[in-house]
């Protein structure tokens, strides 16, 4: 167990380092610099001074070391676009928003998906099953931005059920969260249905029937756990996709989250902000995957926690 945790920790650190380094060189290779607009027409001396302020005059390798040293000590550096703000401050302000959106979407996806999946499996090959699965195909196919726009038009413009946009109250999180979660709910629903049907066809379910257990007891105690396994292993990739999906949702609903900041910073070449966000997102993702793997070994007694797998 300890070896497992330790092995995972090393691979997590390596992964984050790899992503951060790759991002560092990618964004640095991109033409342009953070001050292109600000210093248009400024004298070379001013530009040089500005560059020196952010160590941009040093060779790339040294800049990389300076930045990496900062990351290790938890300092992601100053923003190059937002005057006098550090990246840590920016992340501290926007991160809770993104986390709220992401977790709402995640919870919606899991609850909605597993519920409909179990129902469809139990009502296999009935109109209920066909209906739910048709909706699921729509959910998987429809891009979230189209869903979100539909949601806005129907629920906000026509029914006026939700506030338009922004991020003042937490009721604002519901509609974006739902729009973000639907494709994943659909996917989880299909995974649950298939897993459930497979498990319900197993011999040990017949044994459980022979013991005199009720349908409900069988589903909850004997089938659900096995049926959850494919869902659990999908949660890792789903979380990554939800994080990236939030970029679009944040744009549509004007939510000041980390995703919006990231896209803006990438276009503005606000190097430190871009890299800071990447580091934060990768760490979050690695941590989440670690938790998922850990829970997998608890869910399935046949899987022994060996390092890495």
């Amino acid at each position: 167990m300890i070896r497992f945790v330790f092995g995972r920790l090393i691979s997590v650190i390596l992964t984050i380092w790899f992503v951060a380094t790759l991002s560092f060189f990618l964004i640095r290779l991109a033409p342009g610099n953070p001050f292109a607009n600000e210093l248009r027409g400024a004298t070379p001396e001013v530009t040089e001074a500005k560059k020196r302020e952010y160590h941009l005059d040093l060779p790339l390798r040294e800049q990389y070391w300076i930045w990496l040293r900062g990351v290790v000590t938890g300092d992601l550096g100053p923003s190059m676009k937002y005057r006098g703000k550090t990246v840590n401050e920016i992340i501290r302000q926007t991160f809770p928003t993104s986390i709220a959106l992401g977790s709402v979407a995640m919870v919606f996806a899991v609850v909605l998906g597993m519920m409909t999946g179990v129902i469809a499996a139990l009502k296999k090959n009935t109109p209920i099953d066909y209906g739910l699965m048709a909706v699921a195909v729509f959910g998987i196919s429809l891009p979230s931005f189209i869903l979100a726009t539909l949601g806005i038009v129907v629920l906000v413009f026509w029914a006026r059920l939700f506030p338009l946009a922004g991020w003042e109250t937490y009721s604002n999180v519901l509609l974006p969260g739902l729009a973000l979660s639907l494709p994943f709910a659909a996917k989880i629903s299909r995974l649950t249905r298939v897993g459930m049907i497979e498990i319900l066809g197993e011999d040990f379910i017949r044994t459980a029937h022979a013991k005199g257990l009720s349908e409900r007891q069988i589903v909850i105690k004997h089938a659900l756990r096995g049926a959850m396994l494919p869902v659990v292993s999908y949660l890792g990739p789903a979380f990554a996709l939800i994080l990236t999906g939030s970029l679009v949702i944040e744009k549509i609903f004007f939510i000041p989250g980390l995703g919006t900041i990231f896209v803006q910073a990438a276009t503005n070449r606000d190097y430190n902000v871009v890299l800071g966000t990447v580091v934060v997102f990768s760490s979050l993702l690695c941590f989440f995957n670690f938790v998922v793997d850990l829970s997998y070994t608890f869910l399935d007694p046949r899987v022994k926690p060996v390092s890495g797998r």
Binding site: D203, F204, T207
Partner: peptide, 14 residues
């Protein structure tokens, strides 16, 4: 009732 295949007739998760 006792079933044919003891490998699959017991729930592996419990």
């Amino acid at each position: 009732m006792i079933f044919q295949d003891p490998m699959t007739s017991l729930n592996p998760f419990l």
